[in-house]
Amino acid sequence: MNRMQNFKNGLIKDNPVFGLYLGLCSTLAITTSINNAIGMGVAVICVLILSNVIISAIRKIVPDDIRIPVYIVIIATLVKIIQMLIKAYTPALDTSLGVFIPLIVVNCIILGRAEAFASKHGVLDSALDGLGMGLGYLLAVLAMSFIRQILATGVLSMTNPFDESQVLFAITLIPESFTINLFSTPVGAFVTFACLAAALGAYKIHSEKKAAAQEAEKAAAAKAAAAAKAAPAGKGA
């Protein structure tokens, strides 16, 4: 698999949330607003890329017996640095995300990519894998936040992460009397996740069927060409 294909797989086909069902705890909990989604998504992207790069760089000198503890120490250190930066520059986001920032340490996406990919591939490939998976996670939480925020509040809004008093935009899409408070609750998170995961699953099945049909057409065309080529030789004999 080439680098670009591996990068693209993290976005859709092997999306960590809707395709691989990883990191669901934080996804279901923080997707109540676009601000939360962007904050958590960017934090996960940073940790994924940096941890993949570091683990790939040291993969040949870390004994197999202690590789998991080493990976966890690296990831925990990176998460702590990210948490300190968020506390320093975006305290409102830190309060909103709460315990889910330090819980990135045990996020299945981070350790899963470290073990499944970074520990077996070069630095550049691992960095691209981390970026692809991180962007896939960001797209997933943004999609869920977009749906939940609109259906629960009727308003699509976002504030400046560095100054919570500054509203970047606020667009009313649904009258307040038609909003569905269910989508601001954990139940709404599960419903939204189920619908989006089902949609991605249907898309993957359709894509696989289409690819299989194209392969069958190519095989049939090649067989017909081979038969046509062999026919004159048979008549001459």
Score class of each variant (00 low, 15 high):
L93W: 03
G122C: 03
F169T: 03
I81Y: 09
L139K: 05
R148A: 04
S184P: 02
E215M: 13
F190A: 15
A170G: 02
N107E: 10
I61T: 09
A140K: 00
E215P: 03
S119W: 00
A198M: 11
L200E: 05
V106F: 01
S56H: 09
L142P: 06
L20M: 12
C25A: 10
S26F: 03
A199Q: 03
A233T: 11
A189P: 06
L78F: 10
Q83L: 10
A29T: 14
A57W: 09
A233I: 11
K60W: 05
N52V: 02
A197R: 15
S26K: 00
L124T: 13
A202E: 09
I81L: 14
A221C: 07
P69W: 06
I174H: 08
M144Y: 01
F7W: 14
F162C: 02
T90N: 01
S184H: 06
A221D: 08
F169Q: 08
Y71M: 12
T172C: 00
G234C: 09
I180V: 03
C25H: 04
F178E: 10
R3W: 11
A231C: 07
T192L: 13
K8C: 11
G112A: 13
G188D: 06
E115S: 12
Q5H: 03
L142V: 14
I12G: 01
P16I: 15
I55H: 06
G41V: 08
I147A: 10
I49K: 08
K87H: 02
A230S: 00
G98L: 05
F7Y: 11
A199I: 14
A29L: 15
V42F: 12
A199R: 05
R113C: 04
S51F: 02
Q214H: 02
I205H: 10
K204M: 13
G41W: 01
A116F: 08
L85F: 01
C195Y: 14
A57C: 11
Q214I: 08
M158F: 15
I68E: 10
N9E: 12
V73L: 15
A222D: 14
T77N: 12
K8R: 12
L50Q: 05
I205A: 14
I174T: 04
V42E: 04
M158I: 15
T172S: 01
A230E: 00
T32M: 08
C46K: 09
K60Y: 06
P63K: 12
V191I: 15
A194L: 12
L138M: 04
S119T: 02
C108I: 13
I61N: 12
I74C: 11
S207L: 11
S207I: 07
S26V: 07
F100T: 08
V47N: 10
I66F: 06
Y203I: 09
Y21L: 13
